[in-house]
Amino acid sequence: MTGLNFVGAGLIVIGAGLGIGRIGGSAMDAIARQPEASGKIQTAMLIAAALIEGIGFAALFAA
């Protein structure tokens, strides 16, 4: 039974990883499109990534 916890946590981590990857990729696209706004985009990217990361960690520790 305990094993399932970790499978769930793993799934969430995969999800979080995909999410952060998407954020990073989109941010790169946005920077490529508007290099002059890179500072703002980076900040927004970090915040969004941090929020998803928070969920990921919460899941890890809940497991």
Binding site: A50, E53, G54, F61
Partner: peptide, 13 residues
């Protein structure tokens, strides 16, 4: 709470 967990978890991990 997320602030707390994030810092803790990142460093611990």
């Amino acid at each position: 709470f997320a602030l707390m967990i994030r810092l803790y978890a990142n460093i611990t991990a």
